[in-house]
Write a protein that binds this DNA or RNA. Structure first.
Lengths: 149, 149
DNA sequence: CTCGATGCTTGAGAACTTCAAGCAATAGCT
DNA sequence: AGCTATTGCTTGAAGTTCTCAAGCATCGAG
């Protein structure tokens, strides 16, 4: 708490990779417990925010569009997701979470015990601070907390 | 800066997943520019801290040990990594970065412009704070910055 | 309405992932 | 010592992911 402790950019990058690695591992294990691969889990996770076109999913997940086809195929086959034609552009297919898909992703999030335990080590104020810092560093436009507010 | 802004655990988890996605995407693109897959890049990234046994790599990367065999095979074939027998346990093979491997992972880290730019948005003090919070939340035993210090 | 760009899908080939099995070596036990 | 269970790594098979190159349908601009 002395103010300047001298953490340089490389150390922070290193810790970031360790931290996010821990988060990712926690997520992967939780997804596996619901018989989902990491990619399938990540797709559901993105869709939890709302429907998205195939192309948007590919962009967010940093992969080829053709990639999403197979992933969404398998999720759809399990009834976790649904393809709906866009009303405004007949090329576009919007992917939507089904009720079951929503249930599954919420279960997965609830099973991320390591991450929750880690965050619980912080005080309310510290969580606020962490939130603000991550938001500044990783979101170009500060995300609206409640889109419809 | 009013103290209590009321960020709950779910919002923080959500932001964490967004941050991870951004970081991971940045890393994936950088690794691809050096003709490495994400898994290969992540392996080099871990090895940047020092040699590690196959089993340790699998644990850190949250995957099966048999998985590492193939990944290390390909990295070794490119001369980025070397398998060395452990002097103390003949079952164990320690994986070590070659000079070329070290060069490549450093190049990749240097190409993570989006992440660097994000961190540059923070002040020195804020980076110190972020470092401390991540360390508390994501490392069980606060990592020694300089192991030999 | 013709052309170029965009959205999604398909197919081939490589890499990743998991699981079950197997071998070598170690560790704990009596 | 000898026996047994465990651990570390590798192999092989099956499914998933990933990338690239086409391909088709639709949109958008001229």
């Amino acid at each position: 708490m002395t103010g300047t402790s001298g953490v340089d950019s490389d150390q922070l990058m290193e810790l970031l990779s360790v931290s996010l690695g821990a988060y990712y591992g926690d997520f992967t294990v939780a997804a596996a417990s619901e018989n989902l691969t990491a990619s399938q889990g990540k797709t559901l996770n993105v869709l939890r925010r709302g429907p998205a076109a195939m192309r948007a999913l590919a962009t967010i997940l940093t992969c080829d569009a053709s990639n999403m086809t197979g992933i969404v195929d398998r999720l759809e086959k399990r009834g976790l997701v649904r393809r709906e034609p866009s009303p405004t552009d007949r090329r576009v297919k919007n992917v939507v979470l089904t009720a079951e898909g929503e249930r599954v992703i919420d279960v997965i999030r609830g099973k991320m015990h390591a991450t929750r335990a880690g965050l619980d080590r912080l005080s309310d104020e510290e969580r606020d601070t962490l939130y603000a810092l991550l938001e500044r560093a990783f979101t170009s436009r500060p995300a609206t907390l409640r889109p419809s507010a």
